[in-house]
Nucleic acid binder design. Structure first.
Lengths: 126, 126
DNA sequence: TCTATTGTCTTAGTTAACTAGAACAATCTG
DNA sequence: CAGATTGTTCTAGTTAACTAAGACAATAGA
């Protein structure tokens, strides 16, 4: 079961935060096809956002073909995201963890790490 | 000189995008103390956002102590961000680029890479 | 001093995000 | 079947983000 946590005042709309967290869970394999998402009322109770906001997030995921809502029973993962298998992912995660450890010992903060990755991924363009 | 590019419809407010881009440029050393930011009117002309929105972004950066606005001459970088020196940064960037190349050849998309980094940085917690 | 440049402020209005509370509809479970 | 659970819809309202256009104020440079 996925746990949502909505950061009020981060500037990012709540329904986008919810959608991102589902997509991220799909990419990392935490959610797989057939899994059930928390009910709308669950999310309302745990995250404090309104039911309409949760519904908006779920509806966008449904429009993207990622989940399927079944009235009376819940919202279920329909399709996966990300092209990597866990077998590919695990060694890459280990290598990345080693690099992160090195970066941190060089004094880099998390934000520095993110900035560096964005730079590398975008090909160093400005 | 930094070039801003505001993505309308990304959900993230424009003034936050501007602020993030300045902070990122500071972390990567693209902006250094003494450098001048684009003028408010420049940003208006190139990015299409309103002057008040640019002003809001610059004012937040000023409140954070990162820049200093001088009426009549411009807005200047006051302080730097990030604790790493370029000498530390360069080898780390090279290693990260190698890892990214490996990840991509394993079929990972950019979003997969971001998700993996977030997971590693947060310590694997759920 | 004069002029252009730059940051700043004011006022007014629009739009999207979000809240609030209630009700309805389909499904599952006992 | 009966009751609980779940997704869904509705109406109304609030708030923050953003737009628009103009004017003012301080500084730099000729």
């Amino acid at each position: 079961m996925v746990e949502f946590h909505v950061d009020r005042g981060s500037g990012l709309p709540a329904y986008l935060q919810l959608g991102q967290q589902v997509r991220e869970a799909l990419r990392l394999g935490w959610l797989r096809p057939g899994d059930r998402l928390p009910t709308v009322r669950d999310v309302v109770a745990t995250s404090g956002v309104n039911a309409n906001t949760v519904l908006k997030a779920y509806r966008e995921l449904e429009l993207a073909g990622l989940v399927e809502a079944r009235q009376g029973s819940g919202t279920f993962v329909k399709s996966s995201l990300g092209s990597a298998t866990p077998e590919d992912l695990d060694p890459l995660r280990a290598k990345l963890a080693a690099w992160v450890a090195e970066a941190r010992s060089a004094g880099l903060e998390d934000e520095d790490v993110y900035a560096l990755l964005r730079e590398v991924l975008s090909g160093g363009e400005r």
